[in-house]
Nucleic acid binder design. Sequence first.
DNA 1: TGACTGAATTATGAATTCAAATTAAGCGGT
DNA 2: ACCGCTTAATTTGAATTCATAATTCAGTCA
Lengths: 232, 232
Amino acid sequence: MSVDNEDDTQSDRAFRLLERDIVSGEIAMGSKLGEEALASRLGVSRGPLREALRRLEGRSLVERTAHAGARVVTMSEADLVELYEIRQNLEGLAARLAAERCPDDELADIEDLLMRQKTRSQSNDDSSYSQGVDSDDFHFRVAVASGSRRLQRLLCGDLYSLIRLCRYKTWSIPGQRQSHLDHERILEAIQNRDGELAELLMRRHVGLARQRYHAAESSRGLHQRQPSPFRS
Amino acid sequence: MSVDNEDDTQSDRAFRLLERDIVSGEIAMGSKLGEEALASRLGVSRGPLREALRRLEGRSLVERTAHAGARVVTMSEADLVELYEIRQNLEGLAARLAAERCPDDELADIEDLLMRQKTRSQSNDDSSYSQGVDSDDFHFRVAVASGSRRLQRLLCGDLYSLIRLCRYKTWSIPGQRQSHLDHERILEAIQNRDGELAELLMRRHVGLARQRYHAAESSRGLHQRQPSPFRS
DNA sequence: TGACTGAATTATGAATTCAAATTAAGCGGT
DNA sequence: ACCGCTTAATTTGAATTCATAATTCAGTCA
């Protein structure tokens, strides 16, 4: 009916919508994805919807059993730990590559970003809506600065989706003063073309962020998620 | 028609066949994947075939443009370098995790594997058909030994497919005596529970394998691939 | 001769329809 | 009352059909 934007195919629309709802947690892990219901909900026929589900299956966001149906993947705490270990390593790699090959002006842009964030956090104490958009995120910028398109896609696409599937807003825990200091030190190492140090600092930074989250999570009961919006 | 094996759905069959043919290079990068032709070739209808293509799209093995059609992805030399950088890091991570958490008996199994490979390469000088199956591959075993299912899937599934898409038999270049020595040293570090050393050695090992390949490749002209079997 | 416009063709997108399998419910037996 | 089996209903898998967009080729005009 209403053509929203660029991609005019129904399948792509369903894919984007489903991906958004799954990653944002609006669908809830393990939910059954009944074709007829979803199709009518998204305003598409079962054909394109099935294609969208298959695509999500390829991205390992949904699992499918032979003639039974499709469900959103379920992720345990162990899975989250595994994802963080991978992310830690890969972001370290991104930092090192950025130190080795990123042009100076792009690094200067990131420096500007950090400066803006600093002044903003000083004037506006909470301002925790800093999670505006990707380009405002330090980790995203480093992934771009690595110059490796595939690494960028892995970090900002697949890994980000899966990690965020477990919980909200985990990419960069905002409002942490220590995080900002870490970011400054990492950028400094990158600008000094010290790849080894940049990798080490980034690894430690992500690792500490994980530990910090884990501590906070275990203290207020684990696996609290939004109530599932539709069917269980 | 002929039900080959476990998964009885046509879409899954088409998916497996297409993945195999693409990864093995039988389809050639950039090939147009006409739906009608492929459907008749695989003995399925267009519906299931489209689902298979979408799934491959999700795994980023095929690209699709709005109403134009699907093509096998094309990978440049730069892409291959990026993939190797990622693989290098991730296999290092796998080695470290294995050193930290893999039970001793499983490591003993890998030791047996290396012993068998050694004796076999001594008696049978060529024996390069060692690339029998996954479980005979050292890197595969280390990925398993990491204990991280997701890391294993990333390394042995996605990355392996993409890297192998560029060229044949690149996972472990067989018949290299130095490789076997590297493997022994890496396993030794893992068994000594020296995670840092295992990671370092594995990184260097993969890096050297890449360099070795690159040297060999550039000397005999680049990007020589099988002639495309069907349509361009 | 070359490039642009137009229609015809081909291929893809999507809905409908039918078939097959799983799930759920109902029935009978122990 | 509980367990197993049979049958009905729901859901998924797949093929056919129609609509729409892109490609191709022919024709015309500059």
